[in-house]
């Protein structure tokens, strides 16, 4: 086995992820292989250096994001998400249609001039005479 192929096993050995048989094989190889001994020292030094680094700050919205990701695919006690979206969409469409109908019915309402009615009242009052003898 060439040293190049041992490096992956040395990495697993340093990370503590190798099995017992793989650990024994690595240790047996390291006894006789100088380059791999150097590789082991390098891997251990790198791991120590990484541990010495300060921990990166936890993003504030991490939990929100995690909750969103981990939320169940159904709305609480309701319809599946696609159906909820469909319902919301339909509600919006109906609301818009209702608003348009309301606007249309208001615009469509004919404006009646009260002044014309007053004029009709006045003309009748004059035409009928003081005692209301006018017949229609």
């Amino acid at each position: 086995m060439a040293c190049k192929s041992w490096r992956q096993s040395i990495g697993a050995y340093v990370d503590g992820q190798a099995g017992a048989l793989e650990n024994l094989s690595v240790l047996a190889h390291l006894r006789f292989c100088r380059p791999c001994q150097g590789e082991l020292r390098l891997a251990k030094a790198l791991k120590g250096a990484l541990r010495a680094l300060p921990a990166p700050p936890v993003p504030e919205d991490l939990w929100v994001g995690l909750e969103r990701v981990s939320r169940p695919r159904r709305a609480s006690g309701g319809l599946p998400l696609p159906l909820t979206r469909l319902g919301l969409g339909l509600t919006g469409v109906f609301a818009a249609a209702g608003f348009l109908i309301l606007c249309w019915s208001w615009i469509d309402r004919e404006e009646l001039s009260v002044e014309l009615m007053v004029r009709a009242h006045h003309e009748y009052e004059i035409g009928r005479g003081p005692l209301g003898r006018k017949e229609i």
Partner: peptide, 20 residues
């Protein structure tokens, strides 16, 4: 009442009154 008059106008639905 002989001397004065009172008018009542009954308008159809769907109209608006414009008072001037």
């Amino acid at each position: 009442d002989g001397a004065t008059m009172l008018s009542l106008f009954q308008c159809p639905p769907r109209v608006r009154l414009k008072f001037g």
